[in-house]
Design a protein around this nucleic acid. Structure first.
Length: 482
RNA sequence: GGCGCUAUCGUCUAGCCUGGUCUAGGACGCCAGAUUCUCAUUCUGGUAGCACGGGUUCAAAUCCCGUUAGCGCUACCA
């Protein structure tokens, strides 16, 4: 029975690196019919914050990564860890160490000067009773260190294959309980993985060097070590470590910018994994079926925002109309974009469905739907700032076009595409202009932008009276009548 | 510095285990063309890569060694 866990530390928001670890664990569990456990590693009181923990649960839920067990919080399991620490000491596998931080600092300093590895020399293991008493008297609070007795170790990593370590060259006896009595990450992880009967630990490569410590600890406590699989790390677009740009790659940020959870999952899965059949777009369902941990490669990969955009656009296109409408409306609402006329809004939303990469683009592209008063206010503002909009619309030929359009439209009864066609023809004849000489002023009048969707589409959404009001307003404004 | 991991188009990757079928396949991007009032979309075409150096072999992207580079760890952080 497969049991895996995702164990974030709530010291910040979940980012694409974290969520990929969560995703791979989750997909692996689903694939194997196993259990996916959520555990919060919050033993570091200084850096962990409850709001980050809350955010992590929220982000996971948004991603539809559902945990079957937990969340377990390590901060609430301190007494359990304590038992194991005591037992290790009793069995002589660990010992209270009265070496101070200053002394360790010194060891490091000297090692650095001698250009040697800054390895702890385990001196605390050999202190005499007198020495210990002396140090106790000085008020030194001990840490507890685990004795490394068997430094040679080879393990089989699920995605990296054989990896061997010689702990002698790496570290000395390491701390499993801090002087404040709180267990370290290493101890808590091993106790929990043991007790929770974790069978596969899938985590970031940054833990690879910790793994020998964990195996030794687990064995010392009488647990059978799980299988380990270390995922390569994700880097930023320029290959720099992700830690340098955490703000821009948090799950929340992607959500805020209008990415779909299934698209994010799809894209992230593609970082280090490929199905082998050249398929790139996966529904959530298909992803769960296709994913295979054995196909995950071991090299680090760079996060590419452009490809994410593409994947997201493909997911938007693939969505059913109703589902799309629902997420788009929710997204707009969350972003304080309110339009009373839902008929109009839905029509417009559907029209842009195939054009956009992210839901965030909707906010920008839908400005022409604003209520007339608001639209006019913003247009006037831009006029005062003498932007490109002002320059284009106050051009004499543009003035003629908007004036002609404004008066022509009152004579027509049609709506939508028909109105558009008639207007193109009549205004063309009236002003002697065609092509972009007409369309650019129109576009500017109707959307305040020089680029955008086909004007015909806008005519299909806006009613004649709205169009008329807009053209009349622009015509008056640009000719100084307002 | 020590130890560990990694190395195929700009980016994500397939191929590597089980050498030949790889003059290295796909995707994103980019460039060009088509469509179009513009942008986006869509379609077509193009661009570009086995890090370097040694082996092994009739034959190496594929196996071995070394070098280089990047990353990780080297905490009483996780």
């Amino acid at each position: 029975m497969v049991r895996v866990r995702f164990a974030p530390s709530p010291t910040g928001y979940l980012h694409i690196g974290n969520i990929r670890t969560a995703l791979f664990n989750y997909l692996f569990a689903r694939k194997e019919g196993g259990t996916f456990i959520l555990r919060i590693e919050d033993t570091d009181k200084e850096r962990c914050r409850p709001e980050y923990q809350e955010a992590a649960l929220e982000d996971l839920s948004w991603m539809e990564i559902q945990w079957d067990e937990g969340p377990y919080e390590q901060s609430k399991r301190l007494d359990i860890y304590q038992k194991y620490i005591s037992k290790l000491i009793e069995e002589g596998k660990a010992y209270p160490c009265y070496v101070t931080e200053e002394e360790i600092e010194e060891i490091r300093r000297i090692a650095h000067l001698e250009r040697k590895p800054p390895r702890f020399d385990n001196r605390g293991r050999f202190f005499t009773k007198e020495e210990i008493e002396k140090r106790k008297a000085r008020g030194i609070k001990p840490t507890v260190r685990f004795k490394i007795e068997n430094p040679q170790l080879t393990m089989h990593d699920l995605i990296r294959g054989e990896v061997s370590f010689n702990l002698d060259e790496m570290v000395g006896d390491f701390v499993i309980q801090r002087s404040d009595g709180i267990p370290t990450f290493h101890l808590a992880v091993c106790v929990d993985d043991g007790l929770m009967e974790i069978t596969h630990v899938i985590r970031g490569e940054d833990h690879l060097s910790n793994t020998p410590k964990h195996i030794l600890l687990l064995q010392a406590m009488g647990f059978k070590p799980p299988q380990y699989g270390h995922l390569s790390l994700i880097h930023g677009p320029g290959g720099e470590p992700l830690s340098k740009r955490l703000e821009s790659v948090s799950v929340r940020e992607f959500r805020r910018r209008g990415y779909l959870p299934q698209a994010l999952a799809n894209y992230i899965a593609l970082l280090g994994w490929a199905p082998g059949d050249n398929c790139e777009i996966f529904s959530w369902d298909k992803l769960q079926k296709a994913f295979d941990l054995k196909q995950v490669n071991k090299s680090a990969s760079n996060y590419d925002p452009k490809k994410l955009d593409w994947v997201n656009s493909e997911h938007i296109k693939a969505m059913g109309e109703q589902a799309y409408l629902k997420v788009a409306c929710t997204f707009l609402k969350e972003n304080n974009f309110n339009i009373d006329d839902t008929m109009k809004l839905e029509k417009a939303l559907l029209l842009f469905k195939r054009d956009i990469h992210t839901l965030g683009e909707l906010v920008d592209v839908l400005t022409f739907l604003e209520a007339e008063a608001e639209y006019e206010r913003k247009l006037e503002e831009e006029f005062k700032k003498k932007t490109d909009l002002y320059r284009i619309l106050t051009n004499p030929s543009a003035q003629r076009v908007t004036a002609s359009t404004s008066s022509t439209i009152t004579l027509l009864n049609s709506e939508g595409e028909q109105l558009y066609k008639e207007l193109v023809e009549k205004v063309g004849k009236d002003t002697g202009m065609k092509g972009k000489d007409i369309f650019l002023p129109w576009r500017m009048s109707l959307t305040r932008k020089s680029h955008g969707t086909e004007l015909k589409r806008i005519f299909e959404i806006l009613r004649r009276k709205d169009l008329q009001r807009r053209f009349t307003f622009v015509s008056k404004l640009s000719s100084g009548q307002l």
